[in-house]
Design a protein around this nucleic acid. Sequence first.
DNA 1: TTTCAAAGTTGTATTCATTACAATTATAAA
DNA 2: TTTATAATTGTAATGAATACAACTTTGAAA
Lengths: 142, 142
Amino acid sequence: MKPYERLLEHNIKPSMQRIAIMQYLMEHPIHPSADDIYTALSPSMPTLSKTTVYNTLKLFSEQGAAQMLTIDEKNTNFDADTSIHSHFLCKRCGHIYDLQCPEAIKKVESLEMDGHQVSEMHYYYKGICKNCLRKDKETRID
Amino acid sequence: MKPYERLLEHNIKPSMQRIAIMQYLMEHPIHPSADDIYTALSPSMPTLSKTTVYNTLKLFSEQGAAQMLTIDEKNTNFDADTSIHSHFLCKRCGHIYDLQCPEAIKKVESLEMDGHQVSEMHYYYKGICKNCLRKDKETRID
DNA sequence: TTTCAAAGTTGTATTCATTACAATTATAAA
DNA sequence: TTTATAATTGTAATGAATACAACTTTGAAA
């Protein structure tokens, strides 16, 4: 799926800026922040405004074309993958990993939600990632 | 359980300020923000500093005496209930509801987490709450 | 084609939650 | 006491996010 078509699919009128931002999100599934995206695109789009990045990301999440992640207290992160999956934030290196969502959780969708109308589901974990754990082991003096 | 004992239980040295903040959290399970807590306690503790509220809440969450919720993009919210449960944020009224965590999810704890060391688990949903839905119905012109 | 309104973009200024920091105060052991 | 450590405080700074007004693009109607 191309960025252009993905925008249309979510009733978003395509523009140079919107296509570039969606393309970046799709090609860099690293959960970038608005600033990350601006910094990455700025060199090739010198007239791009940070406000546009914020506006666009807000539009994307409203239209269901991207997911807004509020896992990290410092930054809001964005994910073009809107399928049901969970995230893991490493408190040491700050990296956000995608995780398979256990089957058990996928069934929650159909469960009782106390009468509330659910439009977003978020599952995430925090801790130390396996890479940081490995580094710990390597540098430890036994 | 009294606030004082709860602090000791989590290896937090009690002080007037810490006890007052923990007490507020325990007696007002409405997921207040740092500012909410400061505003509520300030009249009866005029010398209380907002920095202390922030410092204390950070300490609480580090020591596992409270949970830090990053559901709302605008504010960080705090919850003295650290048992496994999930939350529902109403996009209209902003209220955060507690939800029973489906049994299915409670089992996730023991599941494979791709080798990462998990210290926090967060499950939340967003949408329109049942109260706001009811108000919609009442005001609709059929 | 020109005209024009609506939509999209831009840059600057502002807001406001959070943190940094240095000074002050409380605590508790020697 | 004295003294070191921990906790608290107030002010200043940071920085992500938003408000806003000017400018540009778009696309349809005349």
